[in-house]
């Protein structure tokens, strides 16, 4: 590292300090209570990490790696359509056999690089989708966390079917390497008035199996996100299935009355439905934007 300011000895001292053991590590150990512990009730942020030299103690470095590994594995896990179909049938014994389709993204690497392909239905898929006058089709897509839809999808599907007795609900569609917009083409092909896409959200460090639901009225290919409503953070420590179902049913009934989904529906939602209902209209996908926040997750 030539040309850097002359502080090389500083670096060596840092290393020496690290090697000599750390007061900080001892003070945060079990023998003396961690003064940050009670502050963790107010935030899940990784505050008060153990310090050694200029960096973190081994325990905290490895804890972070463990969380990241879980998130990475969740992204790259494959959705097993047979297992998911069996789980759906198990949760909803009267439901017709789930249909399985793929997007045009042939594998995970393509899926991650080419969101456009994940939004389009594979050519051969149209043949397996029966066209009738359905009120609603539910699509279960792997998205960025196949485990999320495996874990939360069957129960929510079952709850929604039970909560909408008068509705003509299409057989569930399992979409592999799918993004939200793949539901538009599925619903268009099947002739469904509504599509609800149940999809794995991008895993975070602490939650790897969070599911989102995107609802669209009269979907067609190219529907803008501003015409969708979304529920997010459906997982064991987030929005529970009965609550998510109630919100989705509220949205469906309101949307049927208003003949629309999206921003117009969101604006009515706050007094009647809690804050996890939002329009899917994304602003800008940088850190200035709330789009990846729990309120408006995005899979694409």
């Amino acid at each position: 590292m030539t040309g850097l300011p002359p502080r090389a000895s500083f670096d060596r001292e840092t290393v020496a300090k690290a090697e000599s053991g750390t007061r900080e590590a001892v003070s945060s150990g079990p023998s003396s209570p961690d003064p940050w512990a009670r502050l963790r009730n107010a935030t899940r942020a990784r505050i008060g990490l153990g310090r050694t030299g200029d960096t973190q103690i081994t325990r905290d470095v490895l804890a972070f790696q463990g969380c990241h590994a879980g998130a990475r594995d969740a992204v790259h896990a494959a959705l097993d359509p047979a297992r998911l179909a069996a789980a759906i049938r198990n949760a909803s014994p009267l439901c017709p056999e789930p249909l399985v389709v793929s997007s045009q993204a042939s594998d995970r690497a393509t899926y991650l690089r080419r969101p456009d392909l994940g939004r389009r239905l594979c050519r051969s898929a149209r043949a397996v989708l029966p066209r009738e006058r359905w009120d609603l089709v539910l699509v279960l897509a792997d998205g960025l966390s196949p485990r999320a839809v495996e874990t939360q999808g069957p129960a929510l599907f079952s709850a929604v079917c039970e909560a909408l007795p008068g509705w003509r609900i299409a057989p569930p569609v399992i979409a592999l390497q799918g993004r939200v917009a793949i539901g538009d083409e599925i619903a268009e092909t099947m002739g469904a008035a509504f599509v609800a896409v149940l999809i794995g959200e991008r895993p975070g460090l602490s939650v790897h199996d969070s599911m989102g639901v995107y609802l669209t009225y009269r979907p067609v290919s190219g529907t803008p996100d501003s015409r969708r409503n979304c529920l997010s953070n459906i997982h064991a420590h987030g929005l529970a299935i009965p609550e998510a179902c109630a919100k989705l049913v509220w949205l469906l009934n309101e949307a049927r009355r208003l003949q629309t989904t999206g921003v117009a529906l969101k604006d009515r939602a706050p007094s009647l439905a809690p804050s996890s209902v939002s329009s899917a209209a994304s602003s800008f996908p940088t850190s200035s934007s709330p789009s990846p926040s729990p309120e408006t997750p995005h899979d694409d």
């Binding site: 602490s206 850190s287 729990p294």
Partner: peptide, 19 residues
């Protein structure tokens, strides 16, 4: 804190990385 943004759900640098 700890490189983990719990609102935006992505990983940046930890304060210790800047140090």
């Amino acid at each position: 804190p700890g490189a983990d943004d719990i609102m935006l759900n992505y990983q940046s640098l930890a304060f210790s990385d800047i140090l």
